[in-house]
Amino acid sequence: MAVDSKTVFDRPVTLRDVVTHYCPGCTHGVIHRMVSEVLDELGLRERTCGVAPVGCSVLCYNYFDTDFMEAPHGRAPALATGFKRMRPDMIVFTYQGDGDLASIGMGEIIHAANRGEKFTTIFVNNAVYGMTGGQMAPTTLPGQITTTCPMGRDTSLTGEPIRIAELLSALATPGYIERVAVHTPAHILKAKKAIRKAFTLQRDNKCYTLVEVLSTCPTNWGNTPGEAIEWLDENMMKYFPLGCYKDYVEPEGS
C-alpha cells in the first residue's frame, strides 16, 4: 500500500468492534453503521441514549457504544419520551422494527410523534417478524407468505399493510419523516443523509424525527442475501414508495 494513502472507510467509533448476531446479509448492520457514523460525525456519542426494541434488534445495545435502555415490546417511544423529557439536553433515539412499532407499539409511536417529542426513531421495516421466526407483520405485503399466513397474506382478512411514514405524516406535529431503503449503494447514501438530517434536527431541538428504512430479512423471507435485495426492490418499493413525507419547516417568526 502506498505510504500516502488514507483510510477512507472504516468502522465508526460509535459502533463497537464486535460481530453482530444478525444473519448473513441482513441489512440491520448497514443501518447500525449509518446511525453510528452520524453520531460520530455530529459528535453526539457521549450524550446519546438509545432505546432498544423487542425484535431482532433487541440486542442492538451490545453494538452501539452509547448508553442504552432496553424497552418492553413496542414501548420504546414511551421510554424515549420519559427520558428526553427529563433530559432534554441529551440525544435519544429509538431503533424499532415493524412488529414493535407498527403493531404492539402503534399507540406509543403515534402519540409520541403527535406530541412532537424531540427524539429520533429509526424504523426498520422488513415486512416480517424476524425475532420470533417469520410471522406476519403489519407491514407484510399482500400475498407474502409468512408462518402465520402460510397461504400468503389475505388482505380481506388482515387488511392492507400499514404505511407508517404516510400514516404519521397525516399528523400535524411531527417535523421530519422520510422513507429510505438500504438495498443498493445509491439508496444507502440517501438513507445516510436522511438519518443525518434527523439527528441534526434533534440536536438543534427542532422536532420529532422518524426515518423508515426498508430492510431485508433473507432468513425469514427464505432468500439468499442477493435474492432478498431483489425481492425488496421488486416488491417492497412498489408498496412503500420512498421519499420525504414531511419536511421540517421553521415556524414563522423564528
Binding site: M69, R75, L79, T81, G82, F83, M86, E108, H111
Partner: peptide, 22 residues
C-alpha cells in the same frame, strides 16, 4: 418540574421507566 399526561397507563408506566433511567 416535568408534568406529562400520557396516552394510556401502559405508556405512562413506560415513560416512567425511561425517566427513571436518568
Amino acid at each position: 418540574g416535568m408534568f406529562l399526561q400520557g396516552e394510556s397507563e401502559l405508556a405512562v408506566a413506560n415513560m416512567l421507566f425511561g425517566a427513571a433511567s436518568t
